[in-house]
Design a binder for these strands. Structure first.
Lengths: 144, 144
DNA sequence: AACAGAAGTAGACGAAATCTAATTTTCGAC
DNA sequence: GTCGAAAATTAGATTTCGTCTACTTCTGTT
Protein backbone atom coordinates (compact mmCIF):
# COMPACT_ATOMS: atom_id res chain seq x y z
CA UNK A 1 0.00 0.00 0.00
CA UNK A 2 3.07 2.19 0.41
CA UNK A 3 3.16 3.12 -3.20
CA UNK A 4 0.35 1.82 -5.34
CA UNK A 5 0.83 4.84 -7.51
CA UNK A 6 4.40 4.06 -8.50
CA UNK A 7 3.77 0.36 -8.92
CA UNK A 8 1.09 1.29 -11.44
CA UNK A 9 3.58 3.52 -13.18
CA UNK A 10 6.11 0.67 -13.29
CA UNK A 11 3.58 -1.32 -15.23
CA UNK A 12 3.07 1.44 -17.73
CA UNK A 13 -0.13 2.73 -16.21
CA UNK A 14 -0.65 6.43 -15.71
CA UNK A 15 -1.75 6.68 -12.06
CA UNK A 16 -4.72 8.68 -10.87
CA UNK A 17 -6.69 8.81 -7.66
CA UNK A 18 -9.40 6.64 -9.22
CA UNK A 19 -7.01 4.03 -10.54
CA UNK A 20 -5.22 3.82 -7.23
CA UNK A 21 -8.55 3.33 -5.47
CA UNK A 22 -9.55 0.53 -7.82
CA UNK A 23 -6.10 -1.05 -7.54
CA UNK A 24 -6.10 -0.98 -3.76
CA UNK A 25 -9.28 -2.94 -3.66
CA UNK A 26 -9.07 -5.32 -6.57
CA UNK A 27 -5.39 -6.21 -6.33
CA UNK A 28 -5.64 -7.30 -2.72
CA UNK A 29 -8.97 -9.10 -2.51
CA UNK A 30 -9.54 -12.85 -2.65
CA UNK A 31 -13.22 -12.36 -3.47
CA UNK A 32 -13.13 -12.72 -7.26
CA UNK A 33 -15.48 -9.77 -7.70
CA UNK A 34 -17.40 -8.87 -10.82
CA UNK A 35 -16.91 -5.44 -12.36
CA UNK A 36 -20.04 -4.05 -10.75
CA UNK A 37 -19.00 -5.38 -7.35
CA UNK A 38 -15.68 -3.60 -7.76
CA UNK A 39 -17.59 -0.44 -8.55
CA UNK A 40 -19.74 -0.81 -5.42
CA UNK A 41 -16.78 -1.53 -3.16
CA UNK A 42 -14.64 1.32 -4.45
CA UNK A 43 -17.57 3.72 -4.18
CA UNK A 44 -17.70 3.09 -0.45
CA UNK A 45 -14.49 5.09 -0.20
CA UNK A 46 -14.73 7.16 -3.38
CA UNK A 47 -18.45 7.80 -3.85
CA UNK A 48 -17.88 10.05 -6.83
CA UNK A 49 -16.18 7.46 -9.04
CA UNK A 50 -18.18 6.59 -12.13
CA UNK A 51 -19.03 3.17 -13.42
CA UNK A 52 -17.33 3.79 -16.75
CA UNK A 53 -14.06 4.60 -15.02
CA UNK A 54 -14.13 1.38 -13.04
CA UNK A 55 -14.89 -0.69 -16.12
CA UNK A 56 -12.19 1.06 -18.14
CA UNK A 57 -9.68 0.66 -15.33
CA UNK A 58 -10.35 -3.06 -14.94
CA UNK A 59 -9.95 -3.53 -18.67
CA UNK A 60 -6.65 -1.68 -18.54
CA UNK A 61 -5.38 -3.70 -15.57
CA UNK A 62 -6.15 -6.92 -17.41
CA UNK A 63 -4.36 -5.68 -20.53
CA UNK A 64 -1.33 -4.77 -18.44
CA UNK A 65 -1.29 -8.14 -16.69
CA UNK A 66 -2.13 -6.97 -13.18
CA UNK A 67 -5.41 -8.83 -13.16
CA UNK A 68 -6.70 -12.14 -14.34
CA UNK A 69 -10.02 -12.18 -16.14
CA UNK A 70 -12.08 -15.28 -15.41
CA UNK A 71 -15.26 -16.32 -17.16
CA UNK A 72 -16.60 -18.59 -14.45
CA UNK A 73 -19.19 -16.32 -12.84
CA UNK A 74 -21.92 -18.35 -11.19
CA UNK A 75 -24.89 -16.54 -12.69
CA UNK A 76 -23.85 -16.44 -16.31
CA UNK A 77 -24.74 -19.62 -18.07
CA UNK A 78 -24.69 -21.42 -21.39
CA UNK A 79 -26.23 -24.78 -22.24
CA UNK A 80 -24.72 -27.92 -23.70
CA UNK A 81 -26.69 -30.95 -24.83
CA UNK A 82 -23.66 -33.15 -24.15
CA UNK A 83 -24.37 -34.25 -20.60
CA UNK A 84 -21.52 -36.73 -20.20
CA UNK A 85 -18.42 -35.39 -18.47
CA UNK A 86 -16.16 -33.59 -20.90
CA UNK A 87 -13.80 -30.67 -21.14
CA UNK A 88 -14.09 -27.38 -23.00
CA UNK A 89 -11.93 -25.42 -25.37
CA UNK A 90 -12.72 -21.77 -26.01
CA UNK A 91 -11.58 -20.33 -29.31
CA UNK A 92 -10.14 -16.93 -28.45
CA UNK A 93 -10.67 -15.69 -31.97
CA UNK A 94 -14.41 -16.24 -32.07
CA UNK A 95 -15.48 -17.05 -28.53
CA UNK A 96 -16.87 -20.36 -29.74
CA UNK A 97 -16.92 -23.17 -27.20
CA UNK A 98 -15.84 -26.65 -28.30
CA UNK A 99 -16.48 -29.89 -26.45
CA UNK A 100 -13.37 -31.95 -25.75
CA UNK A 101 -13.89 -35.66 -25.03
CA UNK A 102 -13.20 -36.70 -21.46
CA UNK A 103 -10.35 -39.09 -22.19
CA UNK A 104 -8.36 -36.67 -24.29
CA UNK A 105 -7.09 -34.87 -21.21
CA UNK A 106 -5.91 -36.54 -18.04
CA UNK A 107 -6.46 -34.95 -14.65
CA UNK A 108 -4.92 -36.23 -11.44
CA UNK A 109 -4.84 -35.52 -7.71
CA UNK A 110 -8.38 -34.13 -7.56
CA UNK A 111 -9.25 -36.43 -4.67
CA UNK A 112 -6.11 -35.56 -2.74
CA UNK A 113 -7.38 -32.05 -2.06
CA UNK A 114 -7.94 -31.97 1.67
CA UNK A 115 -10.31 -29.06 1.94
CA UNK A 116 -12.58 -29.69 -1.03
CA UNK A 117 -15.23 -32.28 -1.69
CA UNK A 118 -15.20 -32.12 -5.48
CA UNK A 119 -18.41 -33.34 -7.09
CA UNK A 120 -17.68 -32.18 -10.62
CA UNK A 121 -14.74 -30.83 -12.55
CA UNK A 122 -13.45 -30.11 -16.01
CA UNK A 123 -10.52 -28.56 -17.80
CA UNK A 124 -11.26 -25.25 -19.47
CA UNK A 125 -8.79 -24.40 -22.23
CA UNK A 126 -8.33 -21.26 -24.29
CA UNK A 127 -6.45 -20.74 -27.48
CA UNK A 128 -6.59 -20.91 -31.24
CA UNK A 129 -7.69 -23.54 -33.67
CA UNK A 130 -4.58 -25.16 -35.09
CA UNK A 131 -5.58 -26.06 -38.61
CA UNK A 132 -8.09 -27.24 -41.12
CA UNK A 133 -11.36 -25.61 -40.16
CA UNK A 134 -13.14 -27.81 -42.70
CA UNK A 135 -12.04 -31.05 -41.01
CA UNK A 136 -15.15 -33.25 -40.83
CA UNK A 137 -14.06 -34.99 -37.61
CA UNK A 138 -14.32 -31.82 -35.59
CA UNK A 139 -15.58 -32.67 -32.10
CA UNK A 140 -18.05 -29.85 -32.02
CA UNK A 141 -19.75 -30.34 -35.37
CA UNK A 142 -22.14 -33.03 -34.40
CA UNK A 143 -25.14 -31.80 -36.31
CA UNK A 144 -26.93 -34.58 -38.16
CA UNK B 1 -36.47 -35.57 -34.85
CA UNK B 2 -39.00 -38.30 -35.46
CA UNK B 3 -40.38 -38.10 -31.98
CA UNK B 4 -39.05 -35.37 -29.78
CA UNK B 5 -42.38 -35.39 -28.05
CA UNK B 6 -42.18 -38.97 -26.82
CA UNK B 7 -38.52 -38.74 -25.90
CA UNK B 8 -39.45 -35.85 -23.63
CA UNK B 9 -42.19 -38.00 -22.15
CA UNK B 10 -39.69 -40.81 -21.54
CA UNK B 11 -37.69 -38.40 -19.43
CA UNK B 12 -40.72 -37.48 -17.36
CA UNK B 13 -41.40 -34.23 -19.16
CA UNK B 14 -44.91 -33.34 -20.22
CA UNK B 15 -44.51 -32.40 -23.89
CA UNK B 16 -45.94 -29.27 -25.45
CA UNK B 17 -45.41 -27.44 -28.71
CA UNK B 18 -43.15 -24.94 -26.95
CA UNK B 19 -41.05 -27.54 -25.18
CA UNK B 20 -40.61 -29.51 -28.37
CA UNK B 21 -39.51 -26.36 -30.16
CA UNK B 22 -36.95 -25.57 -27.49
CA UNK B 23 -35.76 -29.18 -27.40
CA UNK B 24 -35.33 -29.39 -31.14
CA UNK B 25 -33.01 -26.46 -31.09
CA UNK B 26 -31.10 -26.80 -27.87
CA UNK B 27 -30.64 -30.56 -27.82
CA UNK B 28 -29.10 -30.69 -31.27
CA UNK B 29 -26.89 -27.61 -31.38
CA UNK B 30 -23.15 -27.49 -30.76
CA UNK B 31 -23.29 -23.74 -30.21
CA UNK B 32 -23.41 -23.62 -26.41
CA UNK B 33 -26.08 -20.92 -26.46
CA UNK B 34 -27.11 -18.69 -23.57
CA UNK B 35 -30.73 -18.72 -22.47
CA UNK B 36 -31.51 -15.53 -24.35
CA UNK B 37 -29.92 -16.89 -27.51
CA UNK B 38 -32.12 -19.95 -27.21
CA UNK B 39 -35.11 -17.63 -26.92
CA UNK B 40 -34.06 -15.71 -30.02
CA UNK B 41 -33.43 -18.87 -32.08
CA UNK B 42 -36.65 -20.55 -31.09
CA UNK B 43 -38.63 -17.39 -31.79
CA UNK B 44 -37.49 -17.51 -35.40
CA UNK B 45 -39.80 -20.47 -35.79
CA UNK B 46 -42.24 -19.81 -32.94
CA UNK B 47 -42.45 -16.04 -32.69
CA UNK B 48 -45.13 -16.18 -30.03
CA UNK B 49 -43.09 -18.07 -27.44
CA UNK B 50 -42.41 -16.03 -24.32
CA UNK B 51 -39.12 -15.52 -22.61
CA UNK B 52 -40.38 -16.98 -19.34
CA UNK B 53 -41.34 -20.22 -21.07
CA UNK B 54 -37.91 -20.62 -22.58
CA UNK B 55 -36.18 -19.94 -19.28
CA UNK B 56 -38.50 -22.32 -17.42
CA UNK B 57 -38.04 -25.00 -20.06
CA UNK B 58 -34.26 -24.78 -19.96
CA UNK B 59 -34.33 -25.03 -16.18
CA UNK B 60 -36.54 -28.10 -16.45
CA UNK B 61 -34.30 -29.74 -19.04
CA UNK B 62 -31.29 -29.23 -16.81
CA UNK B 63 -33.15 -30.70 -13.81
CA UNK B 64 -34.12 -33.71 -15.89
CA UNK B 65 -30.59 -34.24 -17.13
CA UNK B 66 -31.15 -33.48 -20.80
CA UNK B 67 -28.94 -30.43 -20.70
CA UNK B 68 -25.67 -29.43 -19.14
CA UNK B 69 -25.45 -26.04 -17.50
CA UNK B 70 -22.04 -24.40 -17.94
CA UNK B 71 -20.83 -21.22 -16.30
CA UNK B 72 -18.15 -20.34 -18.83
CA UNK B 73 -19.96 -17.68 -20.85
CA UNK B 74 -17.49 -15.38 -22.54
CA UNK B 75 -19.13 -12.11 -21.51
CA UNK B 76 -19.64 -12.78 -17.82
CA UNK B 77 -16.49 -12.04 -15.97
CA UNK B 78 -14.89 -11.86 -12.56
CA UNK B 79 -11.42 -10.63 -11.65
CA UNK B 80 -8.58 -12.28 -9.80
CA UNK B 81 -5.38 -10.54 -8.71
CA UNK B 82 -3.53 -13.87 -8.80
CA UNK B 83 -2.10 -13.78 -12.30
CA UNK B 84 0.05 -16.89 -12.05
CA UNK B 85 -1.51 -20.04 -13.48
CA UNK B 86 -3.79 -21.73 -11.00
CA UNK B 87 -7.02 -23.68 -10.78
CA UNK B 88 -10.39 -22.77 -9.31
CA UNK B 89 -12.81 -24.39 -6.94
CA UNK B 90 -16.38 -23.11 -6.75
CA UNK B 91 -18.23 -23.69 -3.52
CA UNK B 92 -21.69 -24.80 -4.57
CA UNK B 93 -23.17 -23.71 -1.26
CA UNK B 94 -22.14 -20.08 -1.48
CA UNK B 95 -20.88 -19.55 -5.02
CA UNK B 96 -17.54 -18.45 -3.62
CA UNK B 97 -14.54 -19.01 -5.85
CA UNK B 98 -11.33 -20.35 -4.33
CA UNK B 99 -7.90 -20.32 -5.90
CA UNK B 100 -6.21 -23.72 -6.04
CA UNK B 101 -2.41 -23.74 -6.43
CA UNK B 102 -1.16 -24.97 -9.76
CA UNK B 103 0.78 -27.98 -8.48
CA UNK B 104 -2.09 -29.40 -6.46
CA UNK B 105 -3.75 -30.80 -9.56
CA UNK B 106 -1.96 -32.53 -12.40
CA UNK B 107 -3.15 -32.16 -15.97
CA UNK B 108 -1.76 -34.19 -18.87
CA UNK B 109 -2.10 -34.58 -22.61
CA UNK B 110 -2.99 -30.94 -23.26
CA UNK B 111 -0.31 -30.65 -25.94
CA UNK B 112 -1.40 -33.84 -27.67
CA UNK B 113 -4.62 -32.22 -28.83
CA UNK B 114 -4.25 -32.06 -32.59
CA UNK B 115 -6.79 -29.39 -33.39
CA UNK B 116 -6.16 -26.91 -30.61
CA UNK B 117 -3.31 -24.53 -29.92
CA UNK B 118 -3.88 -24.16 -26.17
CA UNK B 119 -2.41 -20.97 -24.75
CA UNK B 120 -4.01 -21.19 -21.33
CA UNK B 121 -5.92 -23.73 -19.29
CA UNK B 122 -7.13 -24.53 -15.83
CA UNK B 123 -9.22 -27.05 -13.95
CA UNK B 124 -12.57 -25.74 -12.73
CA UNK B 125 -13.95 -27.75 -9.84
CA UNK B 126 -17.29 -27.58 -8.08
CA UNK B 127 -18.34 -29.02 -4.78
CA UNK B 128 -18.50 -28.46 -1.06
CA UNK B 129 -15.98 -27.41 1.50
CA UNK B 130 -14.94 -30.48 3.44
CA UNK B 131 -14.24 -29.10 6.89
CA UNK B 132 -13.09 -26.37 9.17
CA UNK B 133 -14.17 -23.10 7.62
CA UNK B 134 -12.03 -21.23 10.15
CA UNK B 135 -8.83 -22.96 9.03
CA UNK B 136 -6.19 -20.22 8.72
CA UNK B 137 -4.31 -22.02 5.92
CA UNK B 138 -7.17 -21.58 3.47
CA UNK B 139 -5.75 -21.19 -0.04
CA UNK B 140 -7.91 -18.18 -0.79
CA UNK B 141 -6.95 -16.04 2.16
CA UNK B 142 -3.69 -14.71 0.86
CA UNK B 143 -3.97 -11.17 2.08
CA UNK B 144 -0.66 -9.80 3.32
C1' DA C 1 -68.54 -31.22 -19.63
C1' DA C 2 -66.20 -29.78 -15.34
C1' DC C 3 -62.49 -29.48 -12.59
C1' DA C 4 -57.66 -29.15 -10.91
C1' DG C 5 -53.15 -28.72 -11.84
C1' DA C 6 -49.71 -27.89 -15.19
C1' DA C 7 -47.98 -24.88 -18.69
C1' DG C 8 -47.69 -20.59 -21.11
C1' DT C 9 -48.09 -15.54 -21.50
C1' DA C 10 -47.15 -10.41 -21.28
C1' DG C 11 -45.06 -7.22 -19.20
C1' DA C 12 -42.76 -5.05 -15.27
C1' DC C 13 -38.65 -4.93 -12.77
C1' DG C 14 -33.73 -4.73 -11.50
C1' DA C 15 -29.02 -5.66 -12.22
C1' DA C 16 -25.27 -5.37 -15.15
C1' DA C 17 -22.62 -4.02 -19.25
C1' DT C 18 -21.81 -0.75 -22.97
C1' DC C 19 -21.77 3.62 -25.24
C1' DT C 20 -21.72 8.58 -26.02
C1' DA C 21 -20.88 13.20 -25.57
C1' DA C 22 -19.19 16.49 -22.64
C1' DT C 23 -15.93 17.86 -19.09
C1' DT C 24 -11.65 17.65 -16.47
C1' DT C 25 -6.95 16.38 -15.74
C1' DT C 26 -2.26 15.51 -17.06
C1' DC C 27 1.97 16.01 -19.58
C1' DG C 28 5.29 17.79 -22.62
C1' DA C 29 6.80 21.78 -25.33
C1' DC C 30 7.57 26.23 -25.11
C1' DG D 1 4.18 29.10 -15.65
C1' DT D 2 1.02 28.35 -19.53
C1' DC D 3 -0.72 26.45 -23.61
C1' DG D 4 -2.61 22.76 -26.40
C1' DA D 5 -3.19 17.93 -27.31
C1' DA D 6 -4.04 13.64 -25.54
C1' DA D 7 -5.64 10.96 -21.86
C1' DA D 8 -8.83 10.21 -18.22
C1' DT D 9 -13.18 10.85 -16.02
C1' DT D 10 -17.95 11.81 -15.76
C1' DA D 11 -23.26 11.44 -15.91
C1' DG D 12 -26.57 9.47 -17.89
C1' DA D 13 -28.87 6.98 -21.65
C1' DT D 14 -29.36 2.59 -23.63
C1' DT D 15 -29.33 -2.31 -24.08
C1' DT D 16 -29.29 -6.87 -22.62
C1' DC D 17 -30.36 -10.36 -19.61
C1' DG D 18 -32.54 -12.86 -15.90
C1' DT D 19 -36.36 -12.98 -12.54
C1' DC D 20 -40.89 -12.41 -10.99
C1' DT D 21 -45.95 -11.85 -10.82
C1' DA D 22 -50.51 -12.12 -12.02
C1' DC D 23 -53.36 -13.77 -15.42
C1' DT D 24 -54.83 -16.98 -19.14
C1' DT D 25 -54.76 -21.27 -21.59
C1' DC D 26 -54.14 -26.03 -22.06
C1' DT D 27 -54.32 -31.03 -20.62
C1' DG D 28 -55.76 -35.10 -18.49
C1' DT D 29 -59.01 -37.24 -15.42
C1' DT D 30 -63.32 -38.07 -13.82
Amino acid sequence: MLDTSSSLRERGIQPSAQRVAVAEYVLTTADHPSADIVWKRVRERFPWISRATVYNTLKLFVEKGLLNRLTIAEDCVVFDPVVEMHHHFIDEATGAIHDVPWDRVKVDNIDSLEQYEVSDYQVVMRGRLKTDPIDPNETTSQKP
